[in-house]
């Protein structure tokens, strides 16, 4: 098991290197740099100051050195000593929010008492977790009920709703929810100012999780129907096991194995779709920050955030692989 986990960990390294390299090259092929316009007065920065800024941020170095300097580190401190790069968790200074480092922007807050949960990263993670909890806690039981009562009214309703839920993009679903609950019924805030109470979280998490929930429900249902016809279920019934034991111990447990496999893509999808959901609800997470950094040409911010996104996706896929290996021993051998 240890070897299996180690192999999966090592295989993520080339992926991360390539992602950071492509991001870096794309970013530098973009016309215009971070000093192109000053937002406050719209004036151009004088060439001499531009040169100083380039030196300060290391943009005067050749491209390869900028890249290695960002990822591994470079002798760039004022006294010529070594400054560690992204592998030490240093994501570089932000060129738009002067004086702050990317990791500070993402992981900490101005408030001294607040924990990391109040940071941009914490907000995004919490939203994704709420959405996933909602999707799993509602999607799987719905699928189980629908399969047990196959061809009943409940089954048809669940199947129809999950078909619609899979087909309708969560952006569209979010708009519907905003119009119904926010604009017409005025039950929930459209754009929240405070995120301390539970109400403003309801719509984003619902929107976020609905597609995943529908996919969970339909997948659980079809897997349950498959498992139901297996011989060991008939054996369990024949030996006189109570119906709820047959359902939960024999059928449901074996249903979980394939259901776990779609958890990985679901998690990765949640992380990426965060950008739009956060933009729609004005959510103070890192997805929205990523979007703003792109239009600001904030190089190290784009680099840092997309590396973080990529790492999260890779970790999500990997942890599901490992989970799968734990549940189903056959996987480990390969």
């Amino acid at each position: 098991m240890f070897g299996f986990i180690l192999r999966r960990l090592v295989s993520t390294v080339p992926v991360l290197i390539l992602i950071s390299l492509v991001t870096f090259l794309l970013m530098h092929s973009a016309p215009g740099g971070p000093w192109d316009r000053d937002e406050e007065n719209g004036k151009e920065i004088p060439a001499a100051i531009k040169k100083l800024l380039d030196q300060e941020f290391g943009l005067d170095q050749p491209l390869w050195r900028q890249y290695t300097g960002y990822v591994i580190g470079d002798y760039r401190n004022a006294d010529g000593s070594f400054k560690c790069g992204a592998i030490c968790g240093n994501l570089g200074p932000s060129s738009k929010q002067r004086g702050r480092y990317v990791q500070d922007i993402l992981f900490s807050t101005n408030d001294e008492e607040a924990t990391w949960l109040q940071s941009k990263f914490g907000f995004s993670v919490r939203l994704a977790i709420y959405a996933l909890i909602f999707a799993v806690l509602l999607g799987i039981p719905l699928g189980v009920i629908a399969s047990i009562k196959q061809n009943s009214v409940i089954d048809y309703v669940v199947t129809f709703c999950s078909n619609i839920g899979v087909a309708v993009p969560n952006l569209v679903m979010g708009v519907f929810l905003i119009i119904v609950f926010g604009v017409q019924l005025k039950l929930l805030p459209v754009v929240a100012k405070e995120w301390n109470t539970i109400l403003p979280w309801v719509l984003p998490s619902l929107t976020y999780g609905l597609g995943t929930m529908a996919r969970m429900a339909s997948y659980t249902r079809s897997t349950m129907l498959d498992v139901m016809r297996q011989d060991y279920v008939r054996t369990a019934r024949a030996k006189g096991a109570a119906e709820h034991i047959v359902i939960w111990k024999h059928m449901f447990r074996n249903t979980l194995i394939p259901v776990i496999t779609i958890l990985g893509p679901a998690l990765a999808g949640l992380i990426v779709s965060g950008v739009t959901i956060e933009a729609m609800f004005g959510f103070p997470g890192m997805g929205f920050d990523f979007f703003r950094a792109i239009s600001n040409r904030d190089y190290s911010m784009i680099m840092g955030t997309s590396l973080l996104f990529a790492a999260l996706i890779v970790i999500a896929n990997m942890s599901v692989d490992i989970l799968y290996g734990l549940v189903d021993p056959r996987v480990r051998v390969e």
Partner: peptide, 11 residues
């Protein structure tokens, strides 16, 4: 393993 939507945004 590429986060595709992210990359299209970047492109």
């Amino acid at each position: 393993a590429f986060p595709d939507t992210l990359f299209i945004v970047l492109i």
